[in-house]
Design a protein around this nucleic acid. Structure first.
Lengths: 351, 351
DNA sequence: TTCCTCATCCGAAACGTTTTGAATCCGTGA
DNA sequence: TCACGGATTCAAAACGTTTCGGATGAGGAA
């Protein structure tokens, strides 16, 4: 049905010759400059459409110095396989970029190189107009590099110090875990366990802070014990949960830094015949797909990954366009209340 | 610690001047040609490393005609949000490409354009050396376009007709559903319902085929009724499941074309107080994260998305290198046997 | 000495755009 | 008739590579 006009050799030159015009004029006509007569502009546009003309990306890039690409480096393969976060994130990002005509360039680091090398090559080769960084560590050399290199970038998450002079979007983990702690306290829980992670990620820091600060500021005599587990090691999480739950004075509530960990905790509870939420409350973070179907339903926080990614895309676009100075945003996750939390057992003992 | 040599103005020209050599020689030295003296080669390589030189991507692209990018167009936003498939797929693909130094270029289609337009622009602008296509329809114009355009591409899935002259990797859905049907028959099920989808995707066709063919070829008098639902419309799936399960002679087993649908079916069964697997067997496809935690555990097929994506990457690389003719592969999913299937109730009635 | 070969290096073209600064054309007012 | 100005158009440079076809120089054979 459609013309199916399959060009092979595309170029302004060919178009120009066909139209008896100079390359300059054709180029400017297509770009919509006002110094080309309306009549010829129409001629050119029509011919271009007929010839199925699309400007060569490399040539344009070379002369304008802009590629139209945003760089994102993929997590290393050591990271977990089934990560719903990644798909969501990319989808959200892609959408924000598409509106402005940018595309997303994804680099995976090969076996024989480091993420920093990939990042450096990507930036120095002029492949990208901007960079998105995820999984920010408390101290992150990638941030230092990009800052020094003076290329637009936005991070998902932030470093512990010196995060005032670059743009970032972060999930307000402190708020979430503070909220969760308050919730547990109000339900009469006194012995709380926090399952945190071993990695030095910034989000670990703020989430732990949310718990400890809230506890300190409360007039409750509740206490929290912290475990540090490898969040990608399900067996390890499970084992630690078993250990904690077998203690004589076991906690009545467990806060898990991620839903994956919460899942392992639920498993362990089930293994030990501990009923959730009657004998144990569990609250996670992330609202992964499993959360809604695992019995009795995991109470957790939704971090609206997609929205966050869209925000990141927008801020980055602004930054590339030179429109704004640095922007920083803390996005509040919201509690998804399901069946895994309840009032503490033995409520009688509440002062 | 590191030199932190922040170049701003990179170019062969600068390097050449610094070394008192011609641009040609520097270029050829870095490329490892044999017509540059070993001694100067070492000098050049050292200087390049010191200067932190990375060749400009656009310039290279322009002259070589190769970008080093593989194109992947993202599903439209109408698709479901939480799709673990996408992340897996991109991760697998990225990994295969990284080994050969290719990167992944992701295009999202904006609101005012079609996927075909995006694809065409991407190809015609010379942005990519090859294309990966997913979600193949029974008849797919994208395949036709790429074939005509004569650019390397590999599809995940295949079209119904004429799929012999291009490269594809597909999941053997026919095998899986044939297997599942056999399994149900051997467990004594006579009334089977198949929950299929409304879209005209190629995978629908082959999965349905697996069921019907197996049934025809068996000497059982079992029958199958087919429902067509919108797989992204959870409520619709649920409603249809309710309808089917409320029938006087309701099926004793349900095959769901995807795990999402299976989840809705499990929900409906639970709503009606029908016990799975005692009164109803349910088998899905995809092995999404929920499958392992939803009670009583969803029996389903794992399609090893990551491996598939890696294969696609490899085949595409071969194709770009001109190494091979078309390659086609059917990857067998494997059954993940969990708690949602069992022998049919009323086994006495087996002839 | 002269010529040839080999090793090494280099100038210039080419890739397909965008953009600058100038050229051309036309009508109008003097 | 001539100069001027505005509206159009264009030639050429530039972006940073790769590569083709020599150029240069040294050493050895005739």
């Amino acid at each position: 049905m459609t013309p199916e006009n399959t060009r092979q050799k595309g170029s302004l030159k060919a178009l120009a010759k066909e139209l008896n015009l100079s390359i300059t004029t054709v180029s400017r006509a297509l770009a919509g400059y006002s110094d080309v007569a309306e009549k010829t502009r129409l001629r050119v546009v029509k011919a271009a459409a007929d010839a199925n003309y699309v400007p060569n990306s490399a040539a344009k890039m070379l002369v304008t110095g802009r590629s139209g690409y945003i760089g994102l480096t993929l997590p290393l393969r050591s990271e977990p396989f089934s990560d719903p976060f990644l798909g969501e994130f990319i989808a959200g990002l892609g959408e924000a970029l598409a509106e402005r005509g940018q595309d997303l360039l994804i680099n995976t680091v090969a076996a024989n190189q480091t993420e920093m090398q990939v990042l450096q090559r990507t930036v120095e080769s002029g492949r990208v107009d901007g960079i998105v960084l995820t999984r920010i560590k408390e101290k992150d050399e990638r941030v230092d590099f990009l800052r020094k290199r003076n290329i637009p970038f936005v991070t998902h998450g932030r470093t512990l110090h010196d995060h005032s002079d670059y743009s970032w979007i972060d999930t307000d983990g402190e708020f979430a875990f503070s909220h969760a702690t308050d919730l547990l306290l109000s339900l009469g829980h006194h012995r709380i366990a926090l399952f945190s992670i071993t990695e030095h990620m910034m989000f670990r820091y703020v989430r732990e802070l949310g718990v400890t600060q809230t506890l300190e500021n409360s007039d409750s005599d509740a206490s929290v014990t912290v475990s540090h587990v490898d969040r990608f090691d399900t067996d390890g999480c499970f084992a630690e949960a078993l250990r904690v739950l077998r203690q004589p004075n076991r906690p009545t509530a467990i806060l898990a830094l991620t839903d994956d960990i919460a899942l392992a905790v639920l498993d362990a509870a089930s293994e030990l015949g501990i009923s959730v939420p009657n004998q144990l409350s569990v609250i996670g973070f992330g609202n992964i797909p499993q959360a809604s179907v695992v019995p009795p339903g995991l109470t957790t926080f939704d971090q609206s990954t997609r929205t966050t990614a869209e925000q990141i895309g927008k801020v980055l676009m602004d930054s590339i366009d030179g429109k704004t100075v640095t922007q920083q945003q803390l996005i509040r996750p919201f509690l998804v209340s399901r069946g895994s939390h309840a009032a503490a057992p033995n409520v009688k003992s509440s002062a």
